[in-house]
C-alpha cells in the first residue's frame, strides 16, 4: 500500500473540523487528516514533541492552518515552519474567515503557499476544501520524502 499522504489540519473550531472532514470525505481523504486544535499542538506535531513525542508518522504533505487559533495563531505557526530549513518545504495553506489585506500581505511575506477565504455558503466551502485536498494531496507532487523523513 502506498504511503498515506497525510494532511495536518490545525483548526480550533470543532464544527469547522467536522465540516472540513465532511468535505474531504467525499474524496476519501478524511482518514489521512491529522487534526490539531491550536497552533501549539500543530508545532508539537511537526516537531514530534509534547503529546506527539515518539510519533513516527511521515511528515504531512500539506498543512491547513486556520489563522485565528488559541495559544499560537496560524501566522506564528506559518512563520516557524517557513523559518525552519527542515520544514519550510511543506506546503502550507492558510484558511481564514475574512479577507483582511494585512493578513494576506503578511502570509505571503512569510512564504505561504496558498491563502483561502472560507466561503460562508456551505456548498462553496465544501468545494474549496475538496479542491484543496484534491490538489495538494493528489495532484501536487510533494517535496521528496527522503527530504522530509530524515530530519
Amino acid at each position: 500500500m502506498a504511503e498515506i499522504k497525510r494532511i495536518l489540519l490545525a483548526e480550533d473550531s470543532k464544527k469547522d473540523v467536522e465540516l472540513a472532514l465532511e468535505a474531504l470525505e467525499e474524496h476519501h481523504l478524511a482518514n489521512a487528516v491529522i487534526v490539531v486544535h491550536d497552533g501549539a499542538e500543530a508545532l508539537d506535531y511537526l516537531y514530534r514533541r509534547g503529546k506527539f513525542a515518539g510519533n513516527t508518522d511521515t511528515r504531512p504533505v500539506l498543512v491547513l492552518l486556520d489563522l485565528k487559533m488559541p495559544k499560537v495563531d496560524g501566522m506564528e505557526v506559518l512563520r516557524q515552519i517557513k523559518a525552519d530549513p527542515d520544514l519550510k518545504r511543506i506546503p502550507v495553506v492558510m484558511m481564514t474567515s475574512s479577507r483582511e489585506e494585512r493578513d494576506l500581505v503578511c502570509s505571503y511575506d512569510l512564504g505561504v503557499n496558498a491563502y483561502v477565504v472560507k466561503p460562508v455558503k456551505f456548498v462553496d466551502f465544501v468545494e474549496s476544501v475538496k479542491q484543496l485536498g484534491v490538489f495538494w494531496a493528489l495532484i501536487n507532487e510533494p517535496p521528496p520524502a527522503s527530504d522530509i523523513k530524515h530530519l
Binding site: S13, F122, F125
Partner: peptide
C-alpha cells in the same frame, strides 16, 4: 462569520 458558516454548513 464562523458561526454563520457553521449554521449554513449544518443546515
Amino acid at each position: 462569520r464562523a458561526p454563520l458558516r457553521h449554521v449554513q454548513g449544518y443546515v
